[in-house]
């Protein structure tokens, strides 16, 4: 029944955990090698291409983990990178199972890697809806084995997953029960954290707080570590409490080439470069994808190594369009200057 941790395993792991308010800063290499093991259920934070834990998944790829279970509502870049590594070499890195609601790139199109892995029968699939996955993490965060939900009533979704439809004991009407999802490790990227792991999220929260509280361990990457004193001036703005966090890694642009609210917008040019490579792979040409991984993931030791290769103008542009009103962009002509056409 339980594909990750069972509720009782998840509880006992937390009970045994050291909750001391201690300095949890470490390198991404150390965080992943200490906390992520083969066969683990990983809870992926962010939403489609926004605030995805890109720097963390690149490190997971470098360390060559195997047979992972990926749990998420809607994801794009993070899972596309993981799947691309598996497509290139299953002996080096592999995913065993997906529990998810949406894998795609919205405006940028269908996912080449979800198509490749599923149409070749390389991963187990369990479809849910966005609310279902969010509620499954919430059930786990609440310490409950399940939550009732209206969706996916009426659809084919419950015929291919573990939801149970019962008659509500109070209304007598059908209701769906969704099993809790307790990842072994949550991968979360935020704007600000302190050294103890308290996190302040900017923009939509997605389901990041619930995923962090549901998981046995949480790796937080952040754009900036801020002083603890600054963090606790507004305790109601702390979205993830320190004792739910095991590793804090400061990685500016840690969600790049995705969007990170109030920091940087999507890098459409770079996303296209990656998309073209995965689509070429799906159509039978592995060379651009192998070259991409060699250049940006395997050939570097951390995200600095990738970001050093991105032209400064391109990085400046995604910060400008995030921070400025659209109207100002037109007046200054910055949009034209930095549209990345000169890059590469």
């Amino acid at each position: 029944m339980w594909t990750g941790l069972s509720p009782s395993e998840a509880r006992s792991l937390l009970v045994q955990k050291d909750k001391a308010k201690k300095d949890k800063r470490m390198s991404i290499t150390e965080a992943v090698s200490t906390l992520v093991k083969d066969g683990y259920n990983l809870g992926i934070g962010g939403f489609v291409n926004s605030r995805q834990p890109v720097a963390t998944v690149h490190e997971i790829i470098r360390q060559g983990k195997k047979d992972l279970l990926l749990s998420f509502h809607s994801a794009g870049l993070a899972v596309e990178y993981l799947a691309g590594a598996m497509a290139l070499d299953q002996q080096q890195f592999s995913i065993k199972r997906l529990e998810f609601a949406y894998w795609g790139i919205e405006l940028f199109g269908l996912s080449s890697m979800l198509r490749f892995l599923s149409e070749n029968g390389m991963v187990e699939l369990e479809d849910w809806s966005n609310f279902n996955m969010s509620a499954r993490f919430k059930a786990a965060a609440m310490g409950l084995p399940f939550l009732p939900c209206r969706s996916p009533l009426g659809s084919d979704v419950p015929r291919a997953n573990r939801s149970k439809i019962i008659d509500c004991p109070f209304t007598g009407e059908p209701i769906a029960l969704l099993p809790a999802c307790h990842p072994h490790v949550a991968l979360i990227h935020v704007q600000e954290a302190d050294i103890y792991g308290n996190c302040r999220i900017g923009g939509p929260l997605f389901t990041c707080p619930e995923i962090a509280l549901a998981a046995a361990h949480t790796i937080v990457t952040c754009e900036r570590i801020i002083p603890h004193e600054e963090m606790i001036q507004e305790p109601s703005r702390i979205n993830i409490p320190f004792f739910a966090v095991d590793a804090v890694v400061e990685i500016p642009l840690g969600a790049y080439p995705g969007n990170c609210h109030s920091r940087y917008y999507f890098d459409e040019n770079h996303i296209k470069e990656f998309r073209n490579a995965v689509e070429a792979f799906r159509k039978g040409n592995p060379i651009p994808l192998q070259r991409y991984y060699d250049q940006y993931i395997y050939g570097v030791t951390d995200s600095d190594g990738m970001l050093e290769q991105i032209p400064y103008r391109q990085l400046k542009h995604i910060q400008q369009i995030e921070l400025r009103e659209a109207v100002l962009m037109q007046e200054t002509g910055d949009d034209k200057q930095g549209d990345g056409k000169n890059a590469h």
Binding site: Y102, G104, L110, S111, L114, D127, S129, N130, F131, L153
Partner: peptide
């Protein structure tokens, strides 16, 4: 393989 429900089935429900 298409992207999946996302939030569409939740809205439809």
């Amino acid at each position: 393989r298409l992207p999946g429900s996302g939030g569409a089935s939740d809205m439809a429900a």
